[in-house]
């Protein structure tokens, strides 16, 4: 089973597709889980847009809808993702939504380059260290 299938199976409402004349031209997959029993964390696992359809705001729309869904349906405290330091286009795209670089990850993708962990803060909880947050009440444990 691929990671995509894993995401799709567990958070079907967070897998969004962009279609043109019946053809899938873009996709974003995300998940939401409790993080360290202290906050609800959304995670964007993958975003892809068909080469032919790039530069038309499809990725922006997919991110926007996915972020809104994670906030509205799951009450996320923060949304995170990782992207390669050299992937300037992806960085620009996410950072335009307010995502901040909170950590640099050394050779994250098992090659020469590092990655940035980006976080979009949603609630106050995202700016407090987990150690200092009260445990989540009625938080669903990670089922997977």
């Amino acid at each position: 089973m691929s990671e995509i299938e894993f995401f799709l199976n567990n958070w079907p409402n967070l897998t969004l597709m962009a279609k043109h004349q019946g053809k899938v031209i873009g996709c974003i997959i995300s998940k939401v889980e409790p993080h360290k029993h202290a906050r609800i964390r959304g995670y964007i696992g993958m975003l892809a847009v068909d080469n032919e359809y790039r530069g038309r705001g499809i990725a922006k729309e997919l991110i926007s809808q996915s972020v809104d869904a994670m906030i509205d349906a799951y009450r996320c405290d923060e949304i995170i993702l990782e992207t390669e330091v050299v992937n300037k286009a992806a960085l620009r795209l996410y950072e335009n939504f307010g995502f901040l670089r909170v950590k640099r990850l050394f050779r994250y993708y098992l090659n020469k380059h590092d990655a940035f962990r980006l976080i979009l803060p949603v609630t106050e909880k995202s700016s407090v260290r987990s150690t200092f947050l009260p445990p989540l009440e009625d938080a669903p444990e990670s089922k997977y």
């Binding site: 926007s64 307010g98 909170v102 976080i119 803060p121 700016s127 407090v128």
Partner: peptide
């Protein structure tokens, strides 16, 4: 200025940027 499509307030961003110092 904040980025155009920013979905977080400047204050939330400020607080996250300096999360390490909050406590």
């Amino acid at each position: 200025d904040l980025p155009k499509l920013c979905k977080a307030s400047e204050e939330t961003l400020y607080n996250l940027q300096f999360k390490s110092f909050q406590s």
